[in-house]
Design a protein around this nucleic acid. Sequence first.
DNA 1: CAAATATAATAGTAATACTATCATAATATA
DNA 2: TATATTATGATAGTATTACTATTATATTTG
Lengths: 228, 228
Amino acid sequence: MDRLLQSVQIRINEKLFLKDPESSDLGRKIIEISIQMINEIGFENFTFKKLGMQIGSNESSIYRYFENKHKLLLYLTSWYWGWMEYQLVFATNSIKNPKEKLLKSILIITREVKEDSSFSHINEVLLNKIVINEYSKSYLTKEVDTENKEGFYAIYKRLVGRLAEMISEVDEEYEYSTSLASTILENGLHQHYLKEHFPSLTDCTNKITPTQYLTHLVFNILNNTIDE
Amino acid sequence: MDRLLQSVQIRINEKLFLKDPESSDLGRKIIEISIQMINEIGFENFTFKKLGMQIGSNESSIYRYFENKHKLLLYLTSWYWGWMEYQLVFATNSIKNPKEKLLKSILIITREVKEDSSFSHINEVLLNKIVINEYSKSYLTKEVDTENKEGFYAIYKRLVGRLAEMISEVDEEYEYSTSLASTILENGLHQHYLKEHFPSLTDCTNKITPTQYLTHLVFNILNNTIDE
DNA sequence: CAAATATAATAGTAATACTATCATAATATA
DNA sequence: TATATTATGATAGTATTACTATTATATTTG
């Protein structure tokens, strides 16, 4: 990715933290190491106590940044989707042709992240893995409706909206652009997960990517409607 | 559903329980009430202690049936997929026409369960909701690979396999039958969830069902291929 | 240099996720 | 019917989690 991201900051809902982790060394360390740890031991086994030990800091200090680990997960995944949105807009902005634009967007959204921008303390490769493994847990909760009202999923929703719009621009007759957009986002992650843990449940392999599968799917649906 | 289910038992992997809950009153009560409770308070807030209090039984007695709540969730969701498979096979067995067969299968798999068979202690309406809200949590864990080897996801995998075969029978040229099958299963649940909690992320409503969306999607992909 | 602020250290609480032990109730078998 | 077996219940106990509160000590800023 380009260097622009160095100076561009991704704006996260302020209710997700008590103190902005971007505002101090400790805060950035919390983000950096929590990404490593959640990726390694999984969100369930991850605790602020363990994080404190790894950082060489204190549990209570971490609690001054984040109320709990659920909010931290929401922070990290929001950052990820914000980063994704930035790339999407940046890469497709100049593309006039709607099909080409959608094609590019699907690529950006469903590809495996393989390179860390290595400018910031945020490792995007690991964060991509975390999103694949843990994102669902951030909304499959009893608190989802109140948290949705608080705007905790705003960036993700905006991203789905953008994609849905691009779909409509390719085929304005298609009636399910929003559902299809959410399917691309969500099933993109899911196919990556299946590839890794349930290879018998997907055709995706090292040669066939989720991007190929979903691109083929989308472009065979659009401008191509037979009614049942 | 027909009365056959009264006598048909769904076979669950024996490693999922310490003592078969179908073998006693207490066991059946555990299943019955845990379905109600998980549906009400969510899997995270659900504990064996609370379950014991509701049943009027003892925490330690429940631990004699299930090692932990994760295994109980695997038991419940396995039962659900086994029940789904039974309905699928039963309802499509006699259908010769591949398209008709696939159409029926997608309906069965993606529809909202609205009627409890009310023969057994298992409430399928609630169980369907639990699967929508909690199924991902049963495999998005660090233990997924060992548990997969133990066969804990066998029924679900068999179901995806059956659906993939039906897809191939409609269009043997289609290269992503397995991925598409897993997409139908998983995204079917997801669209139901979105409909309930993120209506802006789906076109599904009370009038447009996930079944309609996915049926349209599948039949516009098959026998209809344009290559990129 | 003083004041303000951030972090660290320690302690403490309630709940969770169990394990272990022993008592009692229900059932099966001799 | 007495006895052995098995199932369940009651109680206690442990380690960990998910915090909150307090006080001490750095570090930064005015």
